[in-house]
Write a protein that binds this DNA or RNA. Structure first.
Length: 277
DNA sequence: GAACAGGCAACTC
DNA sequence: GAGTTGCCTGTT
């Protein structure tokens, strides 16, 4: 009897198009983890996958039928050099673009992005990852992959039916009430992702901010990383520092054009990696 | 033990 | 509308 081993490593793109380490470690997502050999394992839309570099290519261990799904997730159709045109030529930005080359703004699941950035407030990345992981472990569907168990991000519907004490294992503090409120808003239709997607950035910002515990920063993170509206420009303490240092007092992100969010990510990654020191 | 953290809301003036 | 304070929890 012949054993047929299904070879599932798909070529996603070249390493020039996507730097997985920068993309996964630049603070936009919380569910990808690297092992000792540089292979990242993560979960997206209930699918676990491994992503790695090999011979100048980025490969992903995924079935052929999911190729487009993953290419979409990594935003591989967009030409990032063209997208950055509006802020090329600014001296400081040249440095940030070069430094962040290969970063892509992931098209994350909208609910996961919303929930993750609600959790992110006043928190550091290891703790955000820990809370998100516990949330998935407690309430997400099991995924068996490569002999290990992973967990999908639990749906808003699932979370909406929980009570605050049930979220206690997350140790998310005052954010637990915000998570529940957001889940219920999504479940009830008060917040409709499809509708939000059709709104302009200012309109979407206003609507998203109606949610309890969602202020300017969290809203913009959700709009950028969840709704993939590339003009969203979240400003946190790192961004504040960088902007203060390199741009005039009355700075308007609109100067970066339609892809201001990408500029934000380059600045943020540069600043957080110690590029300004 | 106090201060602080990738933020928000409620309150003050 | 600008500034201050408390908030859960974990870390320093």
């Amino acid at each position: 009897m012949q054993l047929i081993i299904e070879k599932t490593a798909l070529r996603l793109c070249s390493v020039a198009e996507l730097d997985i380490e920068k993309t996964f470690e630049c603070g936009q997502c919380f569910r990808w983890n690297m092992d000792a050999s540089g292979v990242y394992t993560g979960v997206h839309l209930g699918r676990a996958a491994r992503v790695w570099r090999e011979d100048g290519q980025v490969l992903i261990d995924a079935p052929e039928r999911d190729r487009e799904l993953w290419r979409d997730y990594f935003d591989l159709e967009l030409d990032y050099d063209s997208a950055a045109e509006d802020f090329h030529g600014i001296d400081y930005m040249e440095k940030c673009i070069e430094f962040g080359r290969g970063i892509r703004i992931l098209k994350q699941d909208r609910w996961e992005a919303l929930c993750s950035f609600i959790i992110s407030q006043c928190n550091n990345i290891p703790r955000i990852k820990k809370i998100v992981e516990t949330l998935c472990r407690c309430f997400g569907d099991e995924i068996n992959y490569m002999g290990e168990t992973y967990y999908a991000f639990p749906s808003a519907e699932r979370i909406a039916l929980l009570s605050e004490p049930e979220l206690a294992p997350l140790r998310s503090g005052y954010r637990a009430a915000y998570i529940l409120a957001a889940a219920r808003d999504v479940h009830s239709g008060t917040i409709n992702f499809e509708e939000l997607g059709g709104l302009s950035h200012p309109e979407a910002l206003k609507a998203v901010r109606q949610m309890r515990g969602v202020g300017e920063k969290v809203a913009n993170c959700f709009i950028l990383f969840g709704l993939h509206k590339m003009e969203a420009f979240p400003i946190d303490v790192w961004m504040k520092r960088a902007l203060k240092e390199h741009f005039p007092e009355k700075f308007d992100p609109a100067v970066f054009g339609d892809y201001a969010g990408l500029a934000q990510q380059y600045i943020f990654y540069h600043a957080r990696s110690g590029g300004d020191k």
